[in-house]
């Protein structure tokens, strides 16, 4: 099993964290919602996996390309 970085493709602010450690996600399932450009943008799972760690909190500012969570690929 390998650890996979979940990166945000856009800079923004964390609006809502929808996945919790231990959650099993399919590819593209939302890990969290960012607010950017007055929109709610989902940061999706890059592949099927189990959430290992969430690295940011609500309201945090996120840079483009920042790793926001770690998945364990399954």
């Amino acid at each position: 099993m390998s650890a996979i970085d979940v990166k945000s493709e856009i800079s923004g602010r964390v609006f809502e964290i929808v996945a919790r450690p231990g959650d099993r996600l399919a590819e593209d399932d939302p890990v969290m919602i960012l607010e950017a450009m007055k929109m709610e943008i989902a940061v999706g799972a890059p592949c099927n996996g189990v959430v290992k760690q969430i690295l940011v909190g609500n309201e945090d500012s996120i840079a483009e390309g920042q790793v926001v969570a770690i998945l364990e690929a399954v």
Partner: peptide, 8 residues
């Protein structure tokens, strides 16, 4: 495509 970069 609003799904990515809010469609900007």
């Amino acid at each position: 495509q609003p799904k990515h970069f809010a469609g900007t």
